[in-house]
Design a protein around this nucleic acid. Structure first.
Length: 291
DNA sequence: ATTCCAACCTGATAGC
DNA sequence: TGCTATCAGGTTGGAA
């Protein structure tokens, strides 16, 4: 779920819990696909270091350490980065939820999905990263070192313009939806916001990119920026796993027009929202409003 | 060069 | 109740 608005919300709320604090201990789960950098190296590079800055690049978080090394985190599909003070049922498995008494206070305890546990030298809250499906990624870059994952990224989706899209879509045989999801074209757009932006701009997701007019490219760029900014304002979308670092749900799931609304009525025209596969991804659109 | 597709991993849910 | 099949918001690498 974490797309640009969720990652940006996470960045804003977790930055005060990282920047200016020195790590005393980093606990991890066992090495796996999840860790691009082996855990021993991670611990060696991070313990004793102070976080100097936290930036976002597309859906990646990049934390700079005092040493000049950079800790790169991708939340994948189910990644959660949060404070030990966070309290949310989204941080628990369904079985754990079911055994909760009504109104019982949720106290988070690290479980087998909690892959990172930062403990700091001061007495403030710990920071956790949890990721059930392990599609997330963690890597540590030496000072000045780059990585193909970051090098490949296109411009940030918040800075998209009609001209950028128009240039990127020419001679592309693929669908406009697939193009929006391509992180080397635009960094930060995922399945939810691609569908929402295409709805806002009245363009069908399956349309061939090269056939989109300049005017439509402007509409799509405007739609993207509007949807992404509004979602950031509301704290992102909490549809299945996403919670803010404080344990709060986002608000944008209540403002969705198409994503996950197949079979329901279009807010604008009353026609039924459809769902079909485009670019091998579940895609939602209004057959009347979008053409 | 571009597009497609399986793979990575786990859990929730629907259907039998 | 239990089993199986299907589906999930992402990205990669290699095949087509």
């Amino acid at each position: 779920m974490p797309e640009l608005p969720e990652v940006e919300t996470t960045r804003r709320l977790i930055a005060p819990l990282l920047v200016g604090r020195r790590v005393r201990e980093l606990r991890t789960t066992r090495d796996s696909y999840f860790f691009v950098t082996p855990t021993r190296e991670l611990r060696r590079g991070i313990e004793g270091e102070e976080f100097a800055a936290l930036e976002r690049r597309g859906k990646y978080l990049v934390a700079t350490l005092g040493s000049g090394s950079r800790l790169v985190i991708h939340l994948g599909m189910t990644g959660q980065l949060f404070s030990s003070r966070a309290s949310s049922v989204r941080l628990l498995s369904a079985t754990a939820r079911a055994s909760l008494a009504p109104e019982e206070q949720v106290v988070f305890e690290p479980d087998l999905h909690t892959h990172l546990h930062f403990i700091f030298e001061d007495a403030g809250p710990d920071v956790y990263m949890r990721d059930v499906r392990k599609f997330g990624k963690v890597l540590l870059l030496a000072p000045g070192q780059t990585h193909p994952r970051l090098a490949r990224l296109g411009g940030d989706a918040l800075g998209v313009t009609g001209e950028i899209l128009f240039a990127a879509t020419r001679k592309r045989k693929t669908s406009i939806k697939a193009l929006l999801l391509d992180q080397s074209v635009l960094a930060g757009v995922g399945n939810i916001y691609a569908d929402e932006a295409l709805y806002q701009s009245a363009v069908r997701p399956a349309r061939r990119a090269a056939r989109i007019t300049r005017k439509e490219c402007v509409a799509i760029a405007d739609g993207l920026r509007r949807v992404l900014l509004r979602s950031i304002e509301t704290g992102g979308s909490s549809i299945s796993d996403y919670v803010s670092p404080d344990g709060e749900d986002g608000g944008y799931q209540d403002e969705r027009r198409v994503y996950g609304r197949a079979g329901e009525d279009c807010i604008e025209c009353g026609d039924v929202i459809r769902r079909k596969l485009v670019a091998q991804r579940s895609t939602h659109y209004c057959p009347t409003c979008q053409s």
